[in-house]
Amino acid sequence: MTINEPAAGGRAPARLFLTGGSGYVGRNLIRRLVADGVPVVALARSAAAVDIVRNLGAEPFEGDLFDPRLAQGMAGCDALVHAAADTDHGAGVEARLARINVEGTRTVLAAAKVAGVSRTVLISTESVLLDGAPLVGATEDHAYPRRPAGAYSKSKAEAERLALAMSEPGFEVMAVRPRFVWGRDDTTALPQLADAVRSGAFAWIDGGRYRTSTTHVANLCEGVVLALRNGVGGQAYFITDGKPVEFRAFATRLLATQGLTAPDKTVPRGLLKTIAGVGDVLAAISGGRIRGPLSRQVYATSAVEVTVSIAKACAELGYAPVVSREQGLAELVSAPPPCNGGGGAALSAP
């Protein structure tokens, strides 16, 4: 199967509304859906975003998640992909993330129901299960943690719960959970890694020998398409590249696509955990005015093994990765992504 070949299974959407269309995942979803012949209306909150989605072949609808005209913009759409989210992994951002990720999701899905949308996919994340401890081979029935790793995990878990709870006959809602999205057109993970190496801020955590699941962006798009066609309302599905990989080995190869070599410098995991805890306390005490160099959210995402199983997606959706890691890495060498991401802590991106 090629990257843009339509997935087998149920009926493709006749017309789809997409939030977050100008973002990394959204851009690739537009490319995939347009290639599949699906008309896409993409929410765009700025003139620049309007230009991006229009140039990719989508019809822009200018507004934001709380626009009272959202249902009007979704008129005639039978499917929705909600990809917009605030992905800040810092501390002291609880109120903003709750508004965008939780209330924004509630508002978008309510508008979709009014508009007559019948199937919705929420772009969720494995972070809904993170609490700072290793997550090893997790399946979708793994319980949400009592103490989420940070505001991002907490807000995305709340958004996922409310979205799946809204699912009912005629308005089916599914969640797709990728881990460590990477690949072509990457403006997140790889740019952050590259900037950290160039600035001298990069270090391996305890040598970086722990495992991680990864998700090439084309595989995420495949999972979304299959969830729209074959997914069961009220269910979540992990989507990854398949077998986990050692983080150090994969990050080394990612950086090599940009002509970069990571240093051998390493930092103890225990030290970073302490720094992250202190940073979160400072942010809480100061109301977010003081932010440490590391948060518990970043630590949980980057410093321990996080691996998940795609058995459910394979069985229920008919999912299989359409791009291997080897193919994705080769693609990056031939067409390097723009490196305009931010710097950050001395470690990895989610």
Score class of each variant (00 low, 15 high):
K156L: 07
R54I: 09
A138N: 11
V108K: 03
L56G: 04
D206L: 02
A276H: 04
A165W: 00
D64P: 04
K273M: 10
L294K: 09
S118H: 12
A346S: 10
A8S: 02
A313M: 11
P6G: 00
M166L: 15
A256D: 06
L255H: 15
V93S: 05
A201I: 07
G9L: 07
R69G: 10
L282F: 06
Y319N: 04
G63M: 10
G10I: 03
T266Y: 07
A12C: 02
G73M: 05
G63N: 09
P191T: 14
C221Y: 11
V176D: 02
L33R: 03
A203R: 13
E103K: 11
G137F: 05
V50M: 03
K113P: 02
R146E: 15
F250V: 05
L162Y: 08
L190T: 05
S124F: 13
D67L: 01
E305I: 12
D280M: 00
E5A: 14
G73F: 01
G150F: 12
V323I: 10
A256Y: 07
Y319T: 10
I285N: 00
G259L: 08
A165C: 01
R289G: 03
I52Y: 02
A313R: 09
A346M: 01
G137H: 12
V306M: 07
D141E: 13
I100E: 00
F202M: 06
H82W: 00
V121C: 12
V121I: 10
R289D: 04
T19L: 09
P60D: 00
S153Y: 09
R119I: 06
G170W: 05
F171G: 11
P169R: 15
G259H: 07
K154F: 13
S286C: 12
R296A: 02
R27I: 14
K154I: 08
A143D: 14
A284V: 05
M166S: 13
G20K: 12
A165T: 00
C314W: 01
E326G: 05
I290R: 08
F238T: 02
S155N: 11
I239F: 05
P263R: 02
G328T: 03
V308C: 05
V298M: 15
A330P: 00
V278N: 06
R27F: 12
R184G: 05
P148G: 06
V34K: 10
G318I: 10
E158Q: 10
H142T: 15
G233W: 03
L29H: 04
F238W: 02
D88A: 09
L282K: 06
T188E: 08
L29E: 04
R99F: 00
T215Q: 08
L18T: 00
V53S: 01
C339N: 13
V281D: 06
G9Y: 02
A115G: 13
T307Y: 07
R45N: 12
A236R: 10
G292E: 08
S309I: 03
A79G: 11
